[in-house]
Amino acid sequence: MATDLTTRVFTAVDARDAKAFSEFFAGDGRLVFGNGEPMAGAHAIAEGVGQFFTTISGLRHQVVNEWVTGPDTVVELKVTYDRLDGRSVTVPAVSIWHLDTDDLIDDYRIYIDLAPVYAPST
């Protein structure tokens, strides 16, 4: 079962609420999504994640496993993306984050292959 913070993080993401998601971050927090450029600061994270949300029609995270060690969390996920063409695709992912002394995320990394999400329809 996922911890409260993990549940709240993915509830905000699944609601496609970039602002709510960015509020989990420290002012100088950093997010790296896949092989994308790092986003630094809550404002940049909200903008970047919000832009990503425009490329899909929805998404849902299913927590497979979660490991929490002190300020570090690792979450194994199955993520279902609803594509703009009406199809859905589920891909594995891992999210890793670190909390600062105020329990805000200061470093968040998402490891995922999004190629199936944007592959041409066959």
Rank of each mutant, 00 (worst) to 15 (best):
residue 44 A to V: 04
residue 56 I to W: 02
residue 73 T to G: 09
residue 36 G to C: 00
residue 44 A to G: 00
residue 71 P to D: 11
residue 71 P to A: 09
residue 73 T to R: 06
residue 46 A to H: 05
residue 64 V to A: 09
residue 71 P to H: 03
residue 70 G to W: 02
residue 75 V to C: 04
residue 60 R to N: 11
residue 50 G to N: 10
residue 68 V to M: 01
residue 59 L to T: 08
residue 51 Q to M: 11
residue 56 I to H: 06
residue 46 A to F: 08
residue 66 E to D: 02
residue 62 Q to A: 13
residue 51 Q to A: 15
residue 61 H to S: 10
residue 56 I to K: 04
residue 55 T to Y: 06
residue 65 N to I: 02
residue 37 E to C: 01
residue 72 D to N: 08
residue 64 V to T: 07
residue 58 G to W: 06
residue 50 G to Q: 05
residue 74 V to A: 07
residue 42 A to N: 07
residue 61 H to Q: 11
residue 56 I to P: 10
residue 41 G to V: 13
residue 49 V to L: 14
residue 60 R to C: 09
residue 70 G to E: 11
residue 45 I to G: 02
residue 50 G to K: 06
residue 63 V to N: 04
residue 36 G to A: 09
residue 61 H to C: 12
residue 55 T to F: 05
residue 45 I to P: 08
residue 67 W to F: 01
residue 66 E to L: 01
residue 54 T to M: 09
residue 62 Q to W: 02
residue 51 Q to W: 06
residue 68 V to P: 01
residue 40 A to P: 01
residue 44 A to R: 04
residue 43 H to V: 15
residue 45 I to V: 13
residue 43 H to L: 13
residue 60 R to S: 12
residue 52 F to C: 07
residue 72 D to S: 13
residue 62 Q to D: 15
residue 45 I to A: 05
residue 48 G to C: 12
residue 65 N to K: 10
residue 54 T to N: 13
residue 63 V to C: 00
residue 43 H to G: 10
residue 57 S to W: 03
residue 58 G to F: 06
residue 66 E to P: 05
residue 46 A to C: 12
residue 52 F to I: 13
residue 73 T to F: 05
residue 61 H to W: 08
residue 51 Q to S: 14
residue 41 G to M: 07
residue 66 E to Q: 05
residue 75 V to M: 06
residue 41 G to F: 07
residue 37 E to S: 14
residue 73 T to M: 02
residue 58 G to N: 12
residue 39 M to I: 07
residue 62 Q to K: 09
residue 59 L to Y: 03
residue 72 D to Q: 11
residue 46 A to K: 04
residue 42 A to R: 14
residue 73 T to Y: 02
residue 59 L to I: 11
residue 37 E to K: 11
residue 51 Q to R: 10
residue 40 A to Q: 06
residue 59 L to D: 07
residue 50 G to T: 13
residue 54 T to Y: 01
residue 59 L to S: 14
residue 43 H to Y: 06
residue 43 H to A: 15
residue 45 I to Y: 05
residue 44 A to P: 06
residue 57 S to D: 15
residue 49 V to M: 14
residue 54 T to D: 14
residue 50 G to E: 09
residue 71 P to Q: 01
residue 51 Q to F: 10
residue 47 E to T: 15
residue 72 D to C: 09
residue 65 N to S: 10
residue 49 V to S: 11
residue 70 G to K: 01
residue 63 V to L: 01
residue 66 E to F: 04
residue 70 G to P: 08
residue 55 T to D: 06
residue 41 G to Y: 07
residue 65 N to L: 13
residue 69 T to G: 12
residue 73 T to V: 15
residue 61 H to K: 08
